[in-house]
């Protein structure tokens, strides 16, 4: 089921908690599934002693992937036409992340309906960890 253009207005928001007490094991899962085995995400001695970070931290693409889960739950499966983010802050184990979409525009192109969304994913301290935008083809 996809979102309906007639049911939304500019300024509407939709949000989901996409991570709760993010585990190191989920970072390992993401490394294995994605193929990005950069040890900075899963290897504490490397992250601390070589890279100089307080601990391992999440792949930016994991934050984006979790933000994508909120998005597809909102707009519908297979409906995204564009999705972009800037990674503004690192996400450490234990993080709780909330991904939020705000309707920026509802438009028609060649007889099809589209929604443009502003995206913001924040951590438990209210700090933004990724910021971006997305567009999706929706139903009338």
């Amino acid at each position: 089921m996809a979102l309906n253009a007639s049911a939304i207005s500019v300024g509407d928001t939709y949000q989901e908690v996409v991570a709760e007490n993010l585990s190191r094991t989920q970072l390992v899962q993401y490394a294995g599934a994605s193929g990005d085995y950069n040890p900075i995400h899963t290897d504490t001695p490397f992250a601390q002693e070589i890279a100089g970070y307080p601990s391992v931290f999440a792949h930016g693409m994991l934050s984006m992937g979790m933000t994508g889960r909120m998005l597809t739950n909102y707009v519908g499966d297979g409906r995204l036409t564009a999705f972009g983010v800037r990674f503004t802050r690192q996400v450490f184990p234990g993080a709780t992340l909330t991904a939020k979409a705000t309707v920026a525009a509802v438009r028609q192109e060649d007889g099809q309906h589209f929604v443009d969304l502003a995206l913001s994913t924040t951590n438990q301290d209210g700090q933004e960890v990724c910021k971006g935008d997305a567009s999706a083809r929706i139903d009338p």
Partner: peptide
């Protein structure tokens, strides 16, 4: 790995009933 349990990503029978007609990949 991204915590998405949507059946369209793992349940072929369910995915057949959707407008896409099969399993699709999640964004990213």
């Amino acid at each position: 790995a991204v915590g998405d349990e949507n059946p369209i990503y793992h349940d072929a029978e369910y995915a057949k009933t959707t407008e896409l007609g099969g399993i699709i990949a999640p964004p990213t």
